[in-house]
Simulated scan of single mutants.
Amino acid sequence: MSISTIITAAGKNSRMRKDQISRNMDLKNKLILPFGDKTVLETTIDNALSANIDECIVVLGHYASEIKEAICDNYDSSVKFIENNPVDVGLSTSLFNGLSNSGCDYALCITGDQPTVTTETFNKMIEVSQNSDNPEKTISILRRRKYGLLDTAEGLGMPFVAHRKNLMKYLENEDDNLNPILRKIFDDGYVFYGIKEKNKKELLNINHYEDYLNLLD
């Protein structure tokens, strides 16, 4: 089975911008803040590219030109960049647009502000999906509370692995956060399997500037 990575990098960056303003800092999209010798988004992309995937698609929207100027030259052939049109859409629409540009059977879905999720964890998610009794009806997902076979989808989000076309059916005509959609998928009888993190930082997204500083530490 072929696997595409879809990385959403299209958000408004509103919480980070608010924090930067309160600290009298220059405004800069969180995805192009430095993270080691790369940016946040480049680290996320590189961790995904090192996993057992067949293609990588990055979905841009707000601040697309700023992000592309910062990183696109580093990924001439390895990453396909697409842009939301219109840009002011929810996360589910960004993900749907990315999936629509893929021809793979399955998708590893990631947000661009998850640079601490390791290639090892991505591969574990892919492995669990591929080896399940019914891969088309299995969601392999980074756990938030419990791990192993899950009895609820409450609190869950990206990253996860899912059958691409089945996932698209749930995302089509939706413009929302992902958790309500994942709960609906769960209620329809899909198996959800929570993957245990390699370390605690894998469970953290970068929403606020303090989150960014904590992950740098």
Rank of each mutant, 00 (worst) to 15 (best):
I71S: 03
L156A: 00
T43P: 07
L27P: 09
F122E: 04
C104T: 10
S92M: 02
M25D: 01
I57M: 07
I45Y: 14
L108F: 08
D217M: 14
D133C: 04
T93A: 13
L203W: 00
Y193N: 08
I110L: 11
N214H: 13
K198D: 13
I126M: 13
N214L: 13
S92T: 13
L41K: 14
N97G: 01
L95W: 02
S77G: 00
Y209C: 00
E154P: 00
Y190C: 12
A64K: 05
K68M: 04
V161A: 12
K184L: 05
K184C: 08
G98S: 10
E202Q: 04
K137M: 12
L216P: 05
L150A: 05
L41M: 15
S140V: 11
K28D: 05
V59A: 04
A64Y: 06
K12A: 15
N123C: 04
K165Q: 08
Q20P: 02
E66F: 04
L178G: 09
A70K: 13
T152D: 05
Y75W: 10
Y193L: 09
I67N: 12
L149T: 08
A162I: 04
D105H: 13
E210L: 04
I67V: 15
L150R: 02
V79R: 00
K196M: 08
D187W: 04
A10Q: 13
G90V: 10
N134V: 09
D151N: 14
A9L: 10
K198I: 09
F35Q: 11
F96E: 10
N52P: 11
N74M: 05
I82Y: 04
L60P: 03
N13M: 15
I21M: 06
T44N: 14
Y106L: 15
D188L: 15
K198E: 14
V59C: 12
T119K: 05
I185T: 01
G148Q: 07
C109L: 14
S129F: 15
L41W: 15
Y147C: 07
I57G: 03
C56R: 01
D175A: 11
K28I: 15
F186K: 07
A162K: 03
L213Y: 06
E69F: 11
E55V: 11
G61C: 11
N123G: 05
S22L: 02
D88H: 08
N131P: 03
D151S: 12
S14E: 15
R17G: 02
E197M: 03
N47D: 02
D211N: 12
I141C: 06
A51P: 03
C56I: 01
K201T: 00
P86N: 08
N52R: 12
E174V: 13
D217G: 15
F81K: 02
L91M: 14
G98W: 07
S100I: 00
I6G: 06
L203S: 09
G90Y: 13
S65Y: 02
L27T: 11
L99H: 00
A162S: 11
V128M: 11
N131L: 09
A153Q: 01
S102F: 08
I110M: 10
T138E: 09
I185W: 07
M158K: 06
L149S: 09
N177P: 02
Y212Q: 05
L27Y: 14
M158N: 07
N205H: 09
N52K: 14
N205A: 09
T93P: 03
D88Q: 13
L108H: 07
L182V: 00
F96Q: 07
D37L: 10
I71Y: 09
P159Y: 06
